[in-house]
Amino acid sequence: MPKWLPALIINNGYKDWNQYFDDVYRIFERDFVLDKPVYKNIRLGLKKHPEYNGKSATFWHLISEGKIEEERLPCTYRCERITYPKPIIDNSNDKCLKIWIELRKGEKRIHIWYEDENYLVVLAQRGNYILPWTAFYIKEEHRKKKYNKRWNQYKTPS
């Protein structure tokens, strides 16, 4: 594991979920509001709307999962890894990361995959800035193979 990747924030020393959730949000705020990451000298913005419980859409996409936006639920794997997105983005030039770009809904999506930790960060390119779109832990072997295939197709186009 590279020195720049922080430890997970595990929910086993907390008395209740709300205290843990507050700490997860504080880390997000530190990493994305107070000291934003930089990807290849391009500033990162935040998708603020729609807000849920006073928290930005970017935060919710980093810590929750679900196909229906309004019904997304916090995910333990994502919450534990809230410390990962900023250093992965900031260290995107590290050779341990696999990076590729895909077109999705008319915009470029930058994928930064730290395969050793099964963690993927997705950024949306928006002209002169980038939005952290989502980030997640990849548990299933078939999904790991799928992302490896997509990365290989990008680096060796036909």
Rank of each mutant, 00 (worst) to 15 (best):
E117C: 07
Y84S: 01
Y137V: 04
Y154V: 04
F136M: 13
L103C: 13
Y84C: 05
Y129I: 00
N12S: 14
N118W: 11
I138A: 04
R104E: 11
D23V: 03
P37L: 03
P6Q: 04
V122M: 08
V38G: 09
L34W: 06
G54D: 01
Y119R: 02
K15G: 15
V122G: 10
R104T: 06
K145T: 13
I101V: 15
Y25Q: 05
I10F: 07
K15Q: 10
L123H: 09
S56K: 04
W60N: 09
L123V: 11
N91F: 10
S92F: 14
G66Y: 09
I88H: 09
V24T: 06
A135V: 07
V121T: 07
W17L: 06
R26I: 02
D22G: 12
P6D: 06
C75G: 05
W60E: 01
K15V: 12
A135T: 00
E29M: 03
C79M: 15
L62T: 08
R30I: 01
L73R: 10
K67S: 13
R43T: 07
W113S: 01
N128M: 00
R126L: 09
N41W: 00
N128G: 10
W60L: 03
R81S: 12
A7P: 12
Y77M: 09
Q19H: 13
